[in-house]
Design a protein around this nucleic acid. Structure first.
Lengths: 201, 201
DNA sequence: GTCTATACTGTGATAGAC
DNA sequence: GTCTATCACAGTATAGAC
């Protein structure tokens, strides 16, 4: 009972620390802040952070886990309309692209090995795997199961997002190409055209 | 005269330091080594490095510059056969992919913002721009000038390379998709099929 | 001119008092 | 759980030998 309360308080503190870490990362870069700075942000001393996290890497691990869980939850909202596979893929691509380009540091943490020596924990890795499985399941629903096709798709999407973030942050130079890329891909895998939408009136 | 000799010696030392920095980066990661370690590698003391480079960032800058110059030189060797634009693009893509995936740390330094606070100097930036212009010129030679098309191509290629490096280092899971990607792209921009090759005999 | 020696500030991390 | 004190190491900079 007491333990539950204590644990909940500790969880809340952990949450607060992670939120502050995201904030600092946005301002100073993912590797541009120290534990002393982070502690200052939440009104603690640096060693106290070790009561909540084993190391600085453990904080990154929690952030990594949170980011992949967020993507997993987002991808659960993508409705797959098997009658309109092309529209479904296009919508999924747009949604993924918007998520990925919304936060540079999140993209870096999820997709690039920007923190030297950081390896996600098994738990954090599982979150990323779960997200990927969500994605494969939705492709399977429209008949795309070939690993090479999935790999080509991940490459195209990640390339568009990383170029957008690196060369036109905040713009839409590569965002505009998402639909083209989706169509290219659909043609490549031999998806039939979606049936025409029946407009009412 | 004396100055020339001295300058040449200094250049040779700089070269040696940069080579050692690449070596350390391969072993420990781009951000995984200190100036003291680097100095040890070349038989100097850390402060001595400041006789050759203004700062650690200046060393990264020299590496960045070297890497982009190497790509620029490589792309100068890509022959563009205007009679066979598809084969030319395919060959260029393969060559670029091989270069990019050959060294993880080089790719990170060139294409990802892995070193916090590092901005390439105007000279180093110019090297990357020169490389890019080489690339646009070769596309122009086969009639591809639309910025959106060039952007789509850079996104596809960089996506393939980064996925290869991140998820199958040393393998060929994404390398196998390079030809497919090139063909997709050629279809998209409306390149005609290459004429059949006349085999002799 | 190039080096060694040294010092300054800040880092992640640990030990132990309370 | 939170703190003070401390550690080894980092990047950086200067003084001074030769």
């Amino acid at each position: 009972m007491r333990d539950r309360v204590r644990e909940a308080r500790a969880d809340a503190t952990r949450e607060m620390v992670i939120e502050a870490a995201w904030d600092l990362s946005r301002r100073e870069g993912l590797t541009g802040w120290s534990l002393r700075q982070l502690a200052d942000e939440v009104g603690l001393k640096a060693p106290t952070l070790y009561a909540y996290f084993d190391s600085k890497h453990a904080i990154f691990d929690a952030m990594f886990c949170q980011a992949w869980r967020a993507l997993g939850e987002l991808s659960a909202t993508w409705p797959v309309d098997t009658d309109r596979p092309r529209a479904s893929l296009r919508a999924g691509a747009r949604s993924w692209f918007a998520f990925s380009t919304a936060e540079l540091v999140r993209f870096q943490l999820m997709n690039q090995r920007i923190i030297n020596g950081f390896e996600p924990s098994p738990e954090a890795y599982a979150a990323s795997v779960a997200s990927y499985e969500h994605y494969t399941a939705q492709f399977a629903a429209v008949g795309i199961t070939d690993q090479a096709h999935l790999d080509l798709w991940t490459a195209m999407c990640s390339g568009l997002a990383s170029q957008q973030l690196a060369n036109d942050p905040g713009g839409e130079r590569w965002e505009r190409l998402v639909d083209d890329a989706a169509e290219l891909f659909c043609n490549h895998v031999g998806l039939p055209p979606d049936p025409p939408l029946m407009e009412q009136g």
